[in-house]
Amino acid sequence: MACICVGPKGSGKTHLLSALKNESTIDITTHSVSTVGTNIFKIAIPNYLISGLNQSNKKEKYSTILEIGGCMAPLWRKYFNNVNKIIYVVDTSNLCQISCAGVLLYSIMADPRLQKTKFLLVLTKMDLAYRQMRNEALLMLQMAKLKKQLKQNLVIVEASPITRDGFEDIYKWLDTVRRKAIEGYKERKSEEDSKSKTSESNVKGPLHQGSGPTIDSSISDLEKLCQEREKQDGCNRVRIR
């Protein structure tokens, strides 16, 4: 799975992804149960947010996200293979949980398999938090220290499934990472093709590159050498006689 969504238990991952998938399914009365196991969400990126999309091309772009329950934190590492983007959700209204969330985030970003992975830190439930809670959450997460010690690209977004704040930034992040992954794949493909062409030309050698002597020229040179040798032999016979 190319994209996974993780976070502490009860941080609001299911609420957030459900609202991103279909905004009409989440309101102030919606309640969800903590995920035990995994969920898969196929989220459509709005066309007006997709960079470089032609007006004639109305085909929707999707991003498939695997949500892993917070109670499965000891098993998160088993899902890190071939992951190029991670959404990490933190509940800003629960200050008692933020320090634990920071420890989990640090342990994830320190994994050797995720050194080139793009991270999106979502401070969710902002509708339940007062404004100062954002600064307190970043301070408790020790974001300044994380950015100095770890080299991954970490983007921070404030969001709320109820008010839909921050959704546009999340959609844009998903589209940007998707496009960069496609561009990277095309670059690697072109490099592999050029290397294969170079190796094929080296195997064929100069006879197939038009440089150096050809077979026909070598035969004609050999014939000339034989004729000269015959002339010399004839002259030597005349002298002997």
Rank of each mutant, 00 (worst) to 15 (best):
G69I: 08
I40Q: 03
K180D: 13
A110V: 07
G166Y: 07
E67N: 01
P213F: 09
A110L: 06
L139F: 14
E23I: 09
W76Q: 01
E228G: 13
Q227R: 15
K147D: 04
S56E: 14
Q209N: 13
D165R: 10
F119Y: 13
S220G: 01
G7E: 03
A144H: 13
M133D: 13
I43P: 04
G7P: 06
M1G: 05
E191F: 04
Q142K: 15
W173T: 02
V6C: 11
F119M: 09
I87E: 01
N81Y: 10
N22P: 03
C235Y: 13
I87T: 02
I162V: 13
D127E: 14
M140N: 12
K42G: 04
L105N: 03
E60V: 07
D169V: 01
E187G: 01
R113M: 09
S196G: 00
S63Y: 00
N84Q: 09
S34Y: 08
D91Q: 04
R237C: 13
C96I: 03
I28M: 07
I98N: 02
K58H: 01
E60H: 10
N153F: 05
Q149M: 12
T30K: 01
L225G: 05
D169K: 14
E136I: 11
T14D: 09
I219M: 12
K85N: 13
F119V: 09
R131Q: 15
I40M: 12
S63Q: 05
V33D: 15
V203R: 11
N39E: 13
L128Q: 10
W76H: 07
I87H: 00
D193G: 00
N39C: 08
T64N: 05
K147F: 13
L114E: 07
H208F: 15
L222T: 13
K195T: 07
D127C: 05
E23N: 07
A181E: 14
C235F: 08
N47S: 14
V36Q: 14
S160T: 04
E183M: 07
Q115I: 08
K21A: 06
R179F: 06
L53Q: 15
A73G: 00
A137Q: 03
M109V: 14
K224C: 05
I26R: 01
K42H: 11
